[in-house]
């Protein structure tokens, strides 16, 4: 599993997608961590030369298709987050788990900011909870997810 083939990437992303689209209670939905974004970022971290901005863009488009709203919305968020992370990747390699969780907070916040802002094009509603809540839960989920995925794809 050293070369993390497309199969494993596909499987993890598929589970991420299922977690992302799984219907939950309307209040909890605001707090749902951005699983798919985090798993995408996991692979971008792991192999930036193979899984870059284009990869993140593609996953974003796939999520857009499943969301069934305006196409391109999540693609913008995902690819921009991947872009920022690839620029910073040299520095991030030395981050410990706590710093990574903090980083994830800002990355998800950026993603939420972008996706919510572009949704203003067709829906005039803005919600502060929808902006911050997924960032908080994602920051808490990231260490668990990272340890879990590292355990499977033994680094």
């Amino acid at each position: 599993m050293k070369n993390n083939g497309f199969f494993y990437v596909g499987i993890t992303l598929f589970f991420g997608l299922l977690l992302q689209i799984f219907p939950i209670n309307s209040v909890t939905a605001f707090w749902r961590p951005q699983f798919l974004l985090m798993i995408t970022i996991y692979w971008v971290f792991k192999n930036p030369s193979q899984y870059g901005v284009g990869f993140a863009w593609l996953i974003g488009i796939i999520l857009d298709i499943f969301a069934g709203e305006m196409y391109g919305r999540y693609a913008i968020g995902f690819s921009f987050c991947a872009y920022i992370l690839i620029i910073l990747s040299k520095r991030i390699q030395h981050f410990n788990l706590l710093h990574q969780a903090l980083l994830m907070f800002f990355v998800v916040l950026l993603n939420q900011l972008l996706t919510l802002s572009v949704s203003l094009l067709y829906r005039p509603s803005w919600d502060l909870v929808a902006l911050i809540a997924p960032a908080i839960t994602s920051a808490f989920t990231w260490p668990i997810l990272l340890l879990f995925l590292n355990k499977i794809f033994n680094r």
Binding site: G54, W57, M70, Y71, G72, S79, F80
Partner: peptide, 21 residues
Amino acid sequence: MLILIFVAFFLLLIDATTQWL
């Protein structure tokens, strides 16, 4: 790479304003 972001934004504009998609 940033081109992709513009492509996505363009797609969004098309989808938000027309029925083409």
